[in-house]
Amino acid sequence: MKKSDEQERNIANRLYNLDKKVYETTGSTLGRVFPSSPSFALEKIIDALKINREYFLKNEMTLIANMIGTIRDEEKAAPLKQEYDELEKDILAYNPTIILPHSIDNNDAVASRRFSSDNHLIICISRQFGTGGHTIGFELAQRLGIAYYDKEIIHLACDRMGLNSKDVTDYGIDSSGSSRGILSSIGKASRKFFSTQSDMLFFTQSNLICEMATQESCIFMGRCADVVLTNNNIPHLSIFLSAPFKERVKYEMGIASCDYKTASAKVKTMDQERKNYYQYYTGRQWGYAGNYDLCVNTFFYGHDETIQVLYDMAEMSCKK
């Protein structure tokens, strides 16, 4: 094996293993940068090194750096920071033309450049159903002293369009009395999905989101706000909240006072509707870590600690 081949495989192994350690420490399984099999992931990293796909390495290293930055226990974070910095040095030594994010200790400087003095603090939160996202987002907004928008966006959009909000669900115009929104079943689009009025509702919501983001600091829950703002070059933080399926079912059982079977069906249905809605209007994969600034397992961190993690990230991003 050539020396360069040995270097590439060594770097690939270390990057894959660091990713594994970081997500074991943070408790996130959804956010693994390399969720595929070791052999496939290693070949992908080696391929990136061989053909100098610096954007790939930069994105993956940034995701890992961001997750290390959320670990508040310094005893756990310190060895991961050191391993990250050593890996960064070796990647640069292997190919000096590859531009990677700065070391972990300086990573907050990257985040703090996200917002200028002319920008409002905008946070977009997407979440799996049953993660407690609504209350987490609301309490985070209260703590930050900023506005909070969830279903209010739908009501405002309906007012602007002259629609009765009672005929509208979270995911589209409900002309049949069903509460299933745009998609009538998994993988099969209903007539509402292609409704011009449904699309008009989405674009009206999008216009409102952009208007609000330029007027005040706020939190948007869902509504594809992260992609809407990205497409309009409006700085924001994008968050995805997840939790193990069984824990989300238990959460729904407590909230809705229903049995496991009913709660399980509700969680599956709502997740699918959110996924279909997001992917239909954005073309992106809902819940994929690479699409967000931060993914948090709310069951692992708990309600209060999740809010603290998000609060710290918001504070870090506003540093000037």
Rank of each mutant, 00 (worst) to 15 (best):
6 E>Q: 15
6 E>P: 13
14 R>F: 00
23 Y>K: 06
26 T>A: 11
29 T>D: 12
30 L>H: 04
33 V>D: 02
34 F>E: 03
42 L>R: 07
42 L>K: 12
50 K>H: 07
56 F>Y: 12
57 L>V: 05
62 T>M: 10
62 T>N: 05
63 L>H: 05
64 I>A: 05
65 A>P: 01
65 A>V: 05
71 I>F: 04
74 E>W: 09
76 K>C: 03
77 A>P: 04
83 E>F: 05
84 Y>Q: 03
85 D>N: 15
86 E>W: 00
87 L>I: 08
88 E>F: 10
90 D>P: 01
92 L>N: 13
93 A>Q: 15
96 P>S: 10
97 T>L: 07
98 I>S: 04
99 I>Y: 08
99 I>P: 05
99 I>V: 14
100 L>Q: 09
102 H>F: 09
103 S>H: 10
104 I>C: 09
106 N>W: 06
107 N>G: 06
110 V>K: 11
113 R>I: 03
116 S>M: 02
117 S>R: 08
122 I>M: 13
131 T>S: 11
131 T>D: 06
135 T>Q: 13
138 F>D: 15
143 R>L: 13
145 G>E: 10
145 G>L: 05
146 I>Q: 06
148 Y>G: 00
148 Y>T: 00
149 Y>M: 04
152 E>S: 08
152 E>Y: 01
153 I>F: 00
153 I>C: 06
154 I>A: 03
154 I>Y: 01
159 D>Q: 13
160 R>Y: 02
162 G>T: 01
165 S>M: 07
166 K>Q: 13
167 D>M: 11
168 V>E: 06
170 D>M: 09
173 I>Q: 02
176 S>C: 08
180 R>A: 12
181 G>P: 03
182 I>D: 11
183 L>Y: 10
186 I>T: 13
192 K>S: 15
193 F>L: 09
196 T>A: 09
200 M>N: 09
207 N>D: 15
209 I>D: 04
210 C>Q: 11
220 F>M: 08
221 M>Q: 10
225 A>V: 10
233 N>V: 03
234 I>L: 12
237 L>N: 06
237 L>V: 10
242 S>H: 07
251 Y>W: 05
256 A>Y: 11
259 D>I: 02
262 T>K: 03
264 S>I: 04
266 K>E: 14
266 K>Q: 13
268 K>E: 15
268 K>Y: 07
271 D>T: 00
271 D>M: 00
271 D>N: 05
272 Q>T: 12
275 K>A: 07
275 K>W: 00
276 N>G: 15
278 Y>I: 02
278 Y>K: 05
279 Q>F: 00
281 Y>I: 00
294 L>F: 02
298 T>H: 01
298 T>C: 06
305 E>A: 02
306 T>M: 02
306 T>F: 00
307 I>H: 12
308 Q>D: 14
313 M>K: 13
315 E>M: 13
317 S>F: 03
317 S>A: 12
318 C>I: 13
